[in-house]
């Protein structure tokens, strides 16, 4: 009970901190808000990525949105376990195929079966390269095969990598935007590579045009 209350308060505090730092603002697709149950797939450049998505979602969509994160990272210490499992209610997947005891896609499908939405980062790891997007892992495709009825919503998070680049420990305040794209579905008989290419393109479509200053 008290544990839940602390977790709730912590999530509110983290969200308020993210808002104060980034004044995060959602840019919705012209078709309106995403469907009630969605798989949000986003670019990944910072640990704060999903907090920002959370912060801009309206409460009724936020309440059911659960981030998917690496178990080995979040179960490292007591504090990170508390934050990952209790505060963020993350779906913790085991990323190492050799050592894992549960198939990540199965787990995600089960969570979807409970009516939750998922926030996934199909690049698999934080992008610290000059490229705008790393090639997607195939998990998104397998998930889409399992639940072709759930909409996949591309989400581009802009500027958060400048707020706290890798290796810095003090974040700087900068305005961030979170752009939601048109919900998409796996087409009948769509091949894996085809689908992944389509998902990558849908996400890149939301990225602001590159300038030579991007570095």
């Amino acid at each position: 009970m008290i544990h839940d209350l602390i977790a709730k308060l912590a999530s509110i505090a983290i969200m308020m901190f993210a808002r104060a730092l980034t004044a995060a603002r959602a840019i919705w697709h012209e078709t309106g808000l995403p469907p009630r149950q969605s798989i949000y797939f986003a670019n990944h450049s910072s640990h704060g990525d999903f907090v920002l998505i959370w912060a801009v979602l309206p409460p009724w969509l936020r309440a059911r949105a659960r981030p998917v994160a690496g178990a080995e990272y979040w179960l490292k210490s007591k504090l990170s376990t508390f934050i990952g499992r209790d505060v963020f209610d993350a779906v913790l997947i085991e990323r190492d195929p050799a050592a894992r005891t549960q198939d990540p896609v199965e787990l995600m499908a089960t969570v979807l079966g409970d009516g939750a939405s998922l926030i996934v980062f199909p690049e698999g790891t934080r992008n610290q390269t000059e490229a705008r997007l790393l090639p997607f892992k195939s998990g998104l495709y397998h998930l889409a095969c399992k639940r072709p009825d759930v909409a996949l919503v591309p989400v581009w998070i802009n500027n958060l990598n400048r707020v706290m680049p890798k290796g810095e420990f003090v974040p700087i305040p900068l305005i961030c935007t979170v752009t939601f794209g048109e919900p998409m579905h796996l087409k009948a008989q769509e091949a894996k590579d085809e689908f992944i290419a389509r998902a990558e393109a849908a996400l890149l479509l939301l990225a602001p045009p590159t300038t030579e200053d991007d570095a």
Binding site: A23, N159, R162, P165, E168, V170, P171, I172, P173, L174, I175, D213, A215
Partner: peptide, 25 residues
């Protein structure tokens, strides 16, 4: 604070400016 946040968002910054900008805020 809010004005500086808007301003810094629009200017050319590089990784090397991180400490300086943090100090500004």
């Amino acid at each position: 604070f809010a004005a500086l946040r808007e301003f810094i968002t629009l200017i050319n910054t590089r990784r090397g400016d991180h400490w300086a900008i943090a100090a500004a805020f």
